[in-house]
């Protein structure tokens, strides 16, 4: 059966990708962020998954506003890197895992999650930047297959934080019931606090962010009770992206260990963070395994 081995929460702001692509990671502005990534990168490089489930949102690069799915999942065999207005980012295109996608889709729909199926999808910085955070130098190909899962965070009503956590829990069950012996990592992307437009543009709320960074490990339920209005008020219009971390967190289950985290202001107009968690088999799963033997 498939196993979830780790979960990564990470900002996906395009400038992080641009700093890597333009070799600015040693610049004074960017060095602290990339130095902060280093221990996580080393650990992940030792723990390569077969597939990464990347939970993110599109930023007007693949989905127009004529049709806005709350939750969607890619079921294609390939995904191209989107042209975001100045040519596609020079990173490898994505190899999907159509079989795992379909397994997750069927299980989620069976559990009452009303998924939208994307048979075609160009992926933007929301997905490629987190892959670059994991693997800064992929060469010709990313080191794992990818299943994209997308969340509407751009237009009210976004899903509630509570629904995101519930989706994550169902996603975890779906992955663990996949009948192939593969290792799966789950990426929750977006955040931290930021506001792009309006008179509050430039908002950063370190207190909110640091509490979120702690509780995402120890008390995700408390984060799932925060209303959308509070997320917007506290973390900014675009800070509400953090609800996507809860999907990753729900998938990881109860038995996790924090490997590393880092927090940095600013990355472009946003606070940026990374938090890496190892998923250990739950007591229950170990018992199941023992019984099975």
């Amino acid at each position: 059966m498939a196993e979830i081995t780790w979960g990564l929460a990470t900002s996906h702001v395009p400038s992080i990708g641009a700093a890597m692509d333009n070799e600015k990671t040693e610049d004074e502005l960017w060095k602290p962020l990339f130095d902060g990534y280093q221990p996580a990168r080393e650990w992940m490089a030792e723990q390569k998954p077969d597939v990464a489930i990347v939970i993110y949102n599109d930023h007007a690069n693949a989905l127009g506003l004529e049709m806005i799915p709350t939750f969607s999942i890619g079921t294609a065999e390939h995904y191209d890197v989107a042209d975001e207005g100045y040519g596609p980012r020079q990173v490898p295109n994505i190899v999907g895992d159509a079989e795992l996608s379909e397994h997750i889709l069927v299980n989620l729909v069976d559990e009452g999650f009303d998924m939208t199926v994307l048979q075609e999808l160009d992926v933007d910085h929301g997905l490629t930047v987190p892959l670059s955070v994991y693997t800064p130098n992929p060469g010709d190909a990313w080191p794992c297959r990818v299943v994209p899962m997308l969340v509407n965070v751009l237009q009210y009503p976004q899903p509630t934080a509570d629904r995101c956590l519930a989706l994550g829990e169902a996603l975890g069950r779906a992955i663990r019931s996949f009948p192939q012996d593969i290792k799966v990592a789950v990426f929750g992307t977006g955040g931290m606090s930021h506001q792009l437009s309006g008179e509050r543009a430039g908002l950063i709320n370190q207190e909110f962010d640091r509490n979120f960074l702690e509780k995402i490990e120890t008390d995700p339920e408390s984060l799932s009770q925060i209303t959308r209005a509070e997320y917007v008020e506290q973390a900014g219009s675009e800070g509400i992206e953090m609800i996507m971390w809860l999907i990753m967190r729900g998938a990881l289950g109860d038995n996790i260990r924090r490997v590393h985290d880092t927090y940095h202001v600013p990355a472009s107009n946003t606070a940026a963070a990374l938090a890496l968690f190892a998923a250990e088999k739950s007591a229950e799963e170990n018992t199941d395994a023992a019984i099975a033997q």
Binding site: L154, Y156, P157, R228, A229, V232, E233, S237
Partner: peptide, 13 residues
């Protein structure tokens, strides 16, 4: 139906 948040755009339908 959209929550009002001071000084912030809540982009809605």
């Amino acid at each position: 139906y959209t929550p009002k948040v001071e000084g912030t755009h809540v982009y809605d339908t």
